[in-house]
Design a protein around this nucleic acid. Structure first.
Length: 881
RNA sequence: GGACGCUUAGCUCAGCUGGUUAGAGCGUCGCAUUUACACUGCGAAGGCCGAAGGUUCGAAUCCUUCAGCGUCCACCA
């Protein structure tokens, strides 16, 4: 045998990875001969699948990714050695907004340009180039950790196959009434010019002045005086005795910021009488709570701030000013007017910011696409809502969550879930698969004319006064009136009167009247769809505030009807008018929409592929607990509806990696541990072990370089103990006619090849092997229970302190050449027994350690084996589950 | 405001359904040494198991209360 180096050389890891990869055994199709016999391999043909949570293509991987890759690789390698048909499907996530904002800010820094300067096409080209570069880096990192995933099936959330899946999913959900379009209050980021989901919000505390203002006979408090211009509702708790003389609906004239306003008293239980004066005015357009109140009482909505954060004409002389700059000026004016009562400087306010690198969130009412989580679907014959569907999967035990305490958190999250806003006004991502006949511009232009209030009694046709924005109308103009969600025609009319108003010299949006106005049968149908439980009569008040007011022209007829088509591919002919001029909705989908499909879109869905049949549902979803809601819940939702199935049987949630002082790792703190740097110095095995020991599900894990160094030492210990065993067993000849060791069917390394006389184990050595056997079984049990932390710790201790410190040390005299005191035959027997013992113990432990430390173990194995350790049989008797 | 979790050796944590002297790794201290391995070996010191009460023959473990820490969710004009 060649002289082996004194220290384990981790620089050979890349070569070993190539050896594994080129063997083809990462793919489930290839399996070693020993697995083919169903007699000895009860797991023959039985799949084991993990979908790799796709890392975002936003740069490089961090140690958190290393944890997930190590955990999954352990499970995969363990099951592969147990004879299962293992598939670990890798991929990357386009991460829409995260990637876009990263590229956007880099372009801005370097060239001073925004995405609008570059244009959609050029900008996307840049993002894609960045994504590709990130992807390549990430794949290299995944490999350097030793991940044994099947690269032939690699997927990307934005590639062609996944695009088909996304569009198909969208269409099916739309047709089932789960997806709707409507105006709702959304989290608007004026900086990135897009909506942000509730889960992407990051709250920050801020000390701001709190102003008490005089509003007629009341005193109201606000931290945001700049939103108050249009306030005309004053709200209080119905049981508040202080205000019992005011009645709900009562109107009074008050002096307000831009002159007199007619205020309406509203009694609502959501008001906290203990807070401030117990009275508040509301701004439904820019506050969710206010929006809810306004909706409950059918109040009007008015936009105060535009989408860039500038004040609208309603603000009078402050129009077009940015809210941040206008606030002090507004406070000045209030003071002059005598409306400012007092200022509380010590007020802690929580402001919402976009965690994806954006700005301060300004709630706005906007037209968006939503998934209705309270909509019912048919699931295995019964009608349940999407919320119930998500709960049921976990409640019934079909999906297990480890650790179990996260079940409660999961249920709680679902209970508080609101409709999921899935559209984003960004460019990088899956464009919404909806096409408009006549083009987007034609049909979305009329948004300018949309009405900003609820229209009560629309069905009765009584109300015919509409306030418009930014649009000039003339008497005699014809108009059509459409529900903006599904573009159903609601009514037609001719404008009979236009009212122009000015406040403080500023022209307000037009009010129009129409005496000649008719509702349509489609309106009744639309209303029924929106309110299936209500009986509709001629006088039913409709709460339809999602509509567009479209000036009618001949163009609308010739170039397109505005009809919407939801489809997997661009339509060629409009089913309504025969038009051929289509344009796709410019918005893109929330990134979680495509990742929600991940477990099955990667297996070929919507095509009914063999992979889908074989590998779905997947076995384990291993991910961070911080992502339980974003992702896990949505996968359960999507799979439940689209496949009537669960996406995975077990969810294993790992903790966050923190630094040695338990601090979250972040670039700004400079405490980020770069996995590649660590691997270069200490080797991937050392990092993997350091990430496993002490890593209990759902608990955070402190990681220090010292810890990694400790396991690098362990890798070296393995190397040297192996070197010793190999050197001292070179002359050991396996006997020709093997005998099975008595009573040893579950032995750690069956069958032990033993024959009478030479090569038989001495009783004391047999005992040690029996121990080893028990040890191997306990490791197997721990791995089956997903107890990786303890399995890793046990392996470490056993190898070092039992095998190296005791067994090897005690074997040394038996192996020695000069056994002068004893008879040569007896000495020979001892020596052979010791050799067999060491060889067996070493090989068994290499197999047990392989999932955790694949590189060192394989490197040692390769010294005197032709086959790969990776596909050796797992020690102990294989069981069928 | 609501929920969950944690509190055990200097540090990071194990201790399953209550059962003999409470464990590991790292660290500390002492000793050893041309040994497969100094990326080593042997050994030692270190804990009224957060506090108080209760259940029990018996509690780190079960129950109650409290304190401190942490996390998540909701959210106030």
């Amino acid at each position: 045998m060649k002289e082996l180096p004194k220290h384990y050389d981790q620089s050979k890891e890349a070569k070993l990875y190539k050896l594994w990869e080129s063997s083809g055994y990462f793919a489930p199709e290839a399996h070693p001969p020993w697995t083919d016999n169903p007699q000895t391999n009860p797991n023959h043909g039985k799949p084991f699948t993990i979908s790799m949570p796709p890392p975002n293509v936003t740069g490089t991987l961090h140690v958190g990714h290393a944890v997930m890759l190590a955990l999954q690789d352990i499970m995969i390698r363990f099951e592969r050695m147990r004879g299962r048909k293992t598939l670990w499907l890798p991929g990357t996530d386009h991460a829409a907004i995260a990637t876009q904002s990263k590229v956007e800010s880099e372009i801005y820094k370097r060239e001073g340009k925004t995405r609008f300067d570059l244009g959609r096409e050029e900008f996307l080209r840049r993002v894609e180039a960045f994504a590709q570069a990130s992807h390549d880096t990430i794949v290299g990192q995944i490999k350097s950790l030793g991940s044994s995933c099947d690269w032939s099936r690699e997927a990307f959330t934005l590639d062609q196959a996944r695009t088909l899946a996304v569009r198909t999913a969208f269409k099916q959900m739309y047709e089932a009434g789960l997806i709707y379009r409507g105006k709702r209050i959304v989290n608007w980021d004026p900086k990135l010019q897009t909506t942000v989901s509730d889960d992407e919000i990051e709250w920050k505390e801020e000390q701001v002045p709190f102003y008490y203002l005089k509003y007629g006979p009341f005193e109201i408090g606000t931290a945001r005086p700049e939103t108050k211009f249009g306030d005309k509702y004053v709200v209080m708790h119905p049981k508040d005795k202080r205000y019992k003389n005011y009645k709900h609906g009562q109107q009074l004239e008050v002096d307000w910021m831009n002159g007199k306003v007619t205020a309406t008293v509203i009694k609502d239980e959501s008001v906290d009488p203990e807070f401030g004066t117990g009275v508040m005015t509301i701004t439904p357009w820019h506050d969710l709570a206010d929006f809810d109140i306004a909706q409950r009482h059918n109040l009007e909505f008015e936009q105060i701030i535009d989408f860039k954060g500038l004040l609208l004409p309603v603000a009078g002389e402050f129009a077009s000013q940015h809210i941040k700059k206008a606030r002090p000026l507004i406070v000045e004016k209030l003071k002059r007017q005598g409306l400012l009562v007092k200022i509380d400087e010590q007020y802690t306010h929580r402001i919402a910011t976009n965690s994806r690198g954006g700005g301060i969130i300004e709630p706005q009412i906007k037209e968006q696409w939503f998934v209705d989580v309270n909509e019912q679907i048919t699931d295995h014959g019964s009608r349940i809502t999407l919320k119930e569907l998500m709960k049921k999967a976990v409640q019934s035990g079909q999906v297990k969550i480890i650790p179990e305490r996260f079940k409660k958190v999961y249920f709680h999250w679902i209970d508080n879930l609101r409709d999921w806003c899935i559209s984003r006004q960004i460019w990088y991502g899956h464009q919404i698969p909806v096409w408009y006949c006549g083009g987007v511009e034609k049909t979305s232009q009329p948004r300018m004319g949309f009405h900003s209030s609820i229209v009560p009694e629309l069905l009765g046709g009584k109300r015919r006064t509409y306030r418009l924005r930014d649009h000039k109308f003339n008497v005699g103009d014809r108009f059509v009136f459409k529900n903006s969600g599904n573009r159903i025609l609601l009514g037609k009319g001719i404008i009979t009167n236009v009212i122009k108003t000015t406040v403080g010299g500023i022209e307000l949006p037009d009010m129009i009247h129409s005496d000649k106005y008719k509702t349509t049968p489609e309106l009744i149908a639309a209303f029924k769809r929106m309110h299936p439980d209500e009986k509709v009569t001629k006088t039913t008040p409709a709460i339809i505030y999602d509509y567009e007011f479209i000036p009618f022209s001949k163009q609308d007829q010739t170039e397109g009807c505005g009809q919407m088509t939801v489809s997997e591919t661009a339509p060629t002919k409009c089913p309504a008018c025969g038009g051929t001029n289509f344009e796709q909705d410019p918005d893109t989908l929330d990134t979680w929409f495509s990742s929600g499909l991940w477990t099955f879109s990667t297996l070929g869905w919507p095509k009914q592929t063999k992979d889908l049949k074989t590998f779905h549902p997947t076995d384990v979803m291993e991910t961070g607990y911080d992502i339980l809601f974003f992702w896990v819940a949505r996968m359960i939702l999507m799979t439940g509806f689209l496949l009537k199935d669960i996406p995975f049987k077990t969810v294993y949630l790992h903790g966050l990696v923190r630094d040695k002082d338990r601090q979250k790792m972040s670039k700004s703190k400079g405490n980020v541990i770069d996995p590649l740097g660590i691997i270069e110095v200490y080797g991937a095995d050392a990092l993997r072990m350091a990430l496993m020991v002490g890593n209990l599900p759902g608990n955070d894990l402190p990681l220090s370089e010292d810890k990694v160094r400790g396991y690098r030492n362990f890798a070296n210990k393995i190397w040297n103990a192996s070197r010793f065993v190999l050197q001292n067993t070179q002359d050991y000849n396996p006997p020709q006619s093997p005998l099975i060791l008595r009573g040893d069917k579950t032995a750690a390394t069956p069958p032990l090849k033993i024959r009478g006389g030479r090569g038989e184990l001495l009783p004391e050595d047999k005992k040690i092997l029996k121990d080893l056997d028990n040890f191997a079984q306990s490791i197997t049990k721990k791995l089956e229970k997903y107890d990786f932390a303890h399995a890793a710790e046990d392996l470490y201790r056993y190898f070092w302190h039992t095998f190296a410190d005791k067994v090897i040390e005690e074997a040394k005299p038996k192996l020695a050449d000069n056994l002068s005191a004893e008879a040569p035959a007896k000495a020979e027997k001892k020596r052979a027994s010791a050799q067999l013992l060491l060889k067996t113990m070493l090989e068994t432990q290499l197999k047990l350690l392989h999932p955790f430390m694949p590189f060192v173990t394989e490197a040692i194995w390769q010294i005197n084996h032709k086959d790969l350790l990776m596909i050796e049989k797992w020690p102990g008797k294989l069981t069928g589950d």
